[in-house]
């Protein structure tokens, strides 16, 4: 059978399934809550975004410098420690991190943001270190040889050439963050998870979908936005095939 046709048919089926889901859920009035309680929805949405933005921002401004630091020759020894901690930390489930933050800091917005921050540090740190380390040593040698200072090597060679993995790390972190923030309800952090968990407890499809669909769209949107930013930030000279992916 024609391969293109198979592919097309499968796409069509998936598209139809998604569309019929939306048609069905709309018809059943499951999104009415977003309109009826618009104020509450916007409050939770903003709370959600606030949590994600704050924790991601903190993670980025800490993890990238940290990654830069441990790739300096002086700190070579720390690198092993940091990478292994990051790898181990990523094995720990997000729910566990959230729960641990709560038992330590109590409930509320702060422990939620702290847990999200901690959890997003890891992929960014790991990708920053891996990205910088994967740069061809010849490049650094050439840069040194024509008289770049260490700061210029970092800014003009290392960071631009590691931009793709670093951005991929940020993307992974933010997307995971949006999902984990939906669990913040459990530690009293608020966000759209409030509605999802209410929906689960009350078996109420309106709460479920009015919470779950916006969270999903938020994650997909963030993913797309960061991919677009990648295209702008990462130099055209770096073919994605040559870059390390997450």
């Amino acid at each position: 059978m024609n391969k293109r046709l198979v592919s097309f048919v499968i796409k069509l089926i998936l598209f139809t399934l998604v569309m019929s889901f939306f048609a069905w859920s709309f018809k059943s009035g499951y999104y009415q809550l977003i309109i009826d309680d618009a104020e509450g929805f916007i409050f939770l949405l903003i709370q959600h975004i606030h949590m994600v933005a704050l924790s991601s921002f903190l993670a980025i401004v800490l993890a990238i410098p940290m990654g830069i630091l441990v790739t300096r020759p002086k700190f070579q020894k720390l690198q092993w420690l940091f990478m292994n901690t990051a790898n181990l930390g990523q094995t720990i489930p997000s729910l566990a991190i959230l729960a641990l933050a709560m038992t330590w800091m109590g409930i509320g917005f702060k422990p939620a943001v702290f847990a999200l921050f901690l959890y997003s540090l890891l992929p960014i740190l790991r990708n920053t270190v891996a990205g910088i380390k994967s740069i061809d040593p010849d490049l650094l040698d050439a840069a040194k040889g024509i008289g770049y200072t260490p700061a210029q090597i970092l800014l003009k060679i290392e960071l631009p050439n590691a931009a793709y993995p670093i951005m991929a790390g940020i993307r992974t972190a933010v997307v995971i963050n949006i999902g984990t923030a939906a669990l913040a309800y459990l530690v009293g952090g608020g966000g759209l998870g409030d509605w999802i968990f209410t929906g689960i407890m009350m078996r109420d499809n309106s709460y479920l979908l009015s919470g779950a669909i916006p969270v999903t769209l938020l994650a997909l949107l963030a993913d797309q936005l960061i991919r677009a930013a990648e295209k702008l930030i990462v130099s055209k000279g770096l073919r994605p095939s040559a870059a390390v992916s997450d």
């Binding site: 669909i213 999903t216 997909l220």
Partner: peptide
């Protein structure tokens, strides 16, 4: 990319139709 708790949230109404929502 779909957050797991959101995926559960989406599946519950669908699977409730066959009585396996949770």
């Amino acid at each position: 990319t779909v957050p797991s708790i959101a995926l559960f949230g989406i599946m519950i109404p669908i699977l409730s139709i066959i009585n396996h929502g949770i």
